[in-house]
Design a protein around this nucleic acid. Structure first.
Length: 462
RNA sequence: GGCGCGAUAGCAAAGCGGUUAUGCCGCGGCCUGCAAAGCCGUUUAGACCAGUUCGACUCUGGUUCGCGCCUCCA
């Protein structure tokens, strides 16, 4: 039985889908004005793993991950670059697709763009005004009246009083309450805009996700995910919007009668030197930068080797370590022909893997099972263990390449290596070990490690 | 200031009230012409102080330290 840590309840809860056998899941995706960094990689990989496990568990999953393609930063960046917003966003959507594909991330079922759902946002804002949860201000903006939603703060565990006490932002004079947030922004000259009952403008960030999730998954769905930093205010505001808009009562209700989401999942941050990796701190590494140096599967392995809620410290040393660990797994599979068969979940190791994954997606424990299986494969050459190793790893999106493709890489110089290996074998036959060792040294200097086995000599890159 | 999360061996990272986590590194051995890979064994743990318990890394309370959110952020 699957248990999920639900941020809303702050505890692990048994997962029960709204509709038996089906799971609806929405994850906040990227704002596309720049290349994705490792923090984005973690969200993509983590929720890819979640959707894979749900499917492996037999659920029919509808996975929606949105794309924010209209926002202040996008407008600003497009102006700086002298390109249109459409050009800019398409460029970075393409880059994101490239990066995520390399990381073994399967495409979500739906990837809605905010700009294609504006009419739904307008409908929702109108409903919120109608029900007394929002008000148009004199400057053309529309704000959400936070104090009218009694459940405000239930996800992030904050109270309005505490929030107001910690208020650091200059009070916007058009707001009735400093905590009110914008649903609709009046357009400034030269900005892209949509017509609305409140004048030309564009949607606020939070309303995008409320509108897209309800339109694609319904007013009540199973899982909503995202990075920990979205807990407040973004997800809190989504709840306030959706539950207020979809409930019938007006003033003072807490959303209990029209719950938006049953399980809220938040992944931990990627850090650098124990600090959050972020654009504002300037300490971020883009996915493509990292992939210049490290194999994408190593990066995926690195992400899944930690529990999704834990902080994950990025460093070259940790990536190097992940590479060695993954090398051990691929080395175990080398020389074996594994057919893609169904996993026998009765097998003790498979059962252990399943228990780990069902315990709030405990991938580190699941990985430990893979290493135990690798040990068994190395010891017994058991076909069963080998198949299990590959197929269980496949559930995590790992270990699906031919071992030599991983171990030897894109080998443009493979022929030279083979030639030198043959020369060394000849030398060995003639007991000319000085010559044999010289060849091995030559290859080692080129980053090629030789391994003599009873079946012959194999090689891999260091 | 308010709210929340965490502290495990050299590094990374899990489970568990009593029995080997796991990976990398180190050390010893087997294997090997020598290596590498692999196998076997092995050294390093549970921030600190109390309490509960026959027994605590695991539960409770406190202390210290670190991190995050409270502003755009994955």
């Amino acid at each position: 039985m699957l248990k999920i840590y639900n941020t809303l309840a702050r505890e692990k809860q048994t997962f029960t889908p709204i509709v038996a056998g089906k799971v609806s899941m929405y994850v906040c995706g990227m704002t596309v004005y720049d290349y994705c960094h490792l923090g984005h990689a973690r969200v993509m990989v983590v929720f890819d793993m979640v959707s894979r496990w749900l499917r492996a568990s037999g659920y029919a999953v509808t996975y929606v991950r949105n794309i924010t393609d209209i926002d202040d930063k996008i407008i600003k960046r497009a102006n700086e670059n002298n390109e249109t917003i459409a050009q800019l966003t398409q460029r970075f959507i393409d880059a994101m697709d490239e990066d995520s594909a390399k990381l073994g991330v399967l495409r979500p079922d739906v990837e809605p763009k905010a700009t294609e759902f504006v009419s739904g946002m307008l409908t929702m804002i109108a409903a919120l005004i109608d029900k007394g949860f929002a008000y148009p201000a004199a400057n053309g903006d529309v704000f959400y009246a936070v104090k009218n939603f009694e459940g405000y703060g239930k996800l992030s565990g904050k109270s309005l009083e505490d929030l107001r006490a910690g208020e650091r932002v200059e009070v916007d004079t058009f707001k009735k309450d400093p905590m009110d947030f914008v649903l609709w922004k009046a357009a400034k000259p030269g900005e892209p805009s949509w017509d609305s009952p409140w004048g030309k403008g564009r949607p606020g960030w939070h309303i995008e996700c409320s509108a897209m999730s309800s339109q694609l998954l319904g007013e009540h769905f199973d899982i909503h995910g995202g990075g920990q930093d979205l807990q407040f205010p973004h997800h809190e505001n989504e709840i306030a919007q959706s539950e207020a808009a979809h409930g019938e009562a007006a003033h003072g209700h807490d959303g209990a009668s029209c719950q938006m989401v049953n399980y809220w999942m938040h992944n931990g941050f990627v850090r650098v030197d124990d600090e959050k990796m972020s654009k504002s701190l300037g300490n971020f590494f883009t996915i493509r930068t990292v992939l210049e140096k490290y194999d994408a599967e190593v990066v995926r392995f690195f992400i899944l080797r930690a529990h999704y809620r834990s902080p994950l410290n990025y460093s070259d040393q940790h990536l190097d370590d992940a590479k060695l660990a993954l090398t051990r797994l691929y080395t175990a599979l080398r020389g074996h022909h594994v057919s893609d068969s169904m996993v026998d979940w009765q097998h003790p190791q498979a059962a252990r893997f399943k228990d780990a994954m069902n315990d709030d997606f405990n991938t580190p424990e699941a990985m430990a099972v893979l290493f135990d299986l690798a040990n068994e494969v190395n010891k017994t050459k058991s076909q069963e263990a080998t198949g299990l190793l590959k197929n269980l790893a496949g559930v995590l999106g790992l270990l699906q390449r031919k071992p030599d493709d991983f171990l030897q890489g894109e080998a443009s110089d493979a022929l030279d290596v083979e030639r030198l290996i043959q020369a060394r074998l000849t030398a060995k036959k003639n007991k000319n070990f000085v010559e044999a060792d010289a060849i091995r040294k030559q290859l080692a200097d080129a980053g090629v490690v030789l391994e003599d086995t009873p079946q012959g000599t194999t090689w891999r890159r260091a």
